[in-house]
């Protein structure tokens, strides 16, 4: 039964864009149902590539991929797996391509074979779920950066995924929007992998943090509360921090 809980199983995956310089170097990785994993690493460590390999958008030069207990190598294997894994892209402008918010959120459900009425219903419910009720008729390119990120998240959640892969979800967001996304992600009962440079965000939303360097993933230290120097507004005034 152990294997039933295994959602993503990558074995000895290697990948390179140019042929010589390996972006992923015999990388092995497992995600079990219910696990919440944070992934940190320097720029160019292959974090985005790692996600693309899982989704089948890039083909590894060697190694095997198993998704939901089935081996995946052909486009059609990935096609069925993509319905159960949601990937949030780094740049929201890549994700939102429909003229209006409603159409964009409904795009996924329509592709899953829902009728226009059902898809509209799902889209509206998903928007309401992340406090975006009333956004359905907004024009996607007129949204602010934070709103775009939230709507992008809605487009992914509307597919009803079992696993959530987020690529730098808090990048370029102000504190308020970041907090909103953090709260929302904490509430979601999904297995997930979050890539971020924002350790604060990862410690709030994930159970384990892995580090990624030179194409491999290794377990970082377990999360442990520790004092550290930090900066924020009005920091000179006497104040207390929450637990």
């Amino acid at each position: 039964m152990e294997n039933n809980k295994l959602i993503i199983n990558l074995k000895e995956i290697s990948f390179s864009y140019t042929g010589d310089n390996l972006i992923l170097d015999h990388l092995s990785f497992r995600l079990r149902r219910g696990e919440r994993i944070g992934l940190v690493g320097p720029n160019g460590a292959g974090k985005t590539t790692f996600f693309y390999i899982i989704m089948g958008l890039l083909k590894p030069s060697s190694g095997t991929i198993e998704l939901f207990g089935r081996s995946a190598s052909q486009e059609k294997d990935f096609r069925s797996a993509r319905k159960r894994i949601g990937l949030l892209f780094q740049d929201s402008d890549d994700q939102l391509f429909s003229p209006t918010v409603l159409e964009d959120v409904a795009f996924g459900p329509l592709n899953l074979g829902k009728s226009p009425e059902e898809a509209t219903d799902i889209a509206l419910k998903t928007l309401a779920r992340i406090d975006l009720a009333g956004f359905e008729d907004r024009i996607t390119y007129e949204l602010s950066g934070g709103e775009k990120r939230l709507v992008s998240l809605a487009t992914v959640l509307a597919m009803g995924p079992e696993v959530l892969l987020l690529d730098e979800p808090t990048n370029g967001l102000d504190e308020e929007t970041e907090e909103k996304i953090t709260d929302m992600l904490k509430r979601l009962d999904l297995s997930c992998i979050f890539v971020s440079h924002n350790l604060d965000f990862l410690s709030k939303t994930t159970d384990k943090i892995y580090g990624m360097a030179t194409g491999r993933i290794c377990l970082d230290e377990e999360l442990a509360p520790h004092p550290h120097i930090h900066a924020h507004r009005h920091g000179r005034l006497p104040h207390k921090h929450g637990s």
Binding site: M55, R79, G86, Q95, E103, F107, L110, N111
Partner: peptide, 24 residues
Amino acid sequence: DRAQRIHNAMLCRGFSGRYYTLSQ
């Protein structure tokens, strides 16, 4: 590059060449 990324984003959401619309 962006066109490529958008296509990827669409694939991730189950796009298979047919574009469905909400409006009737």
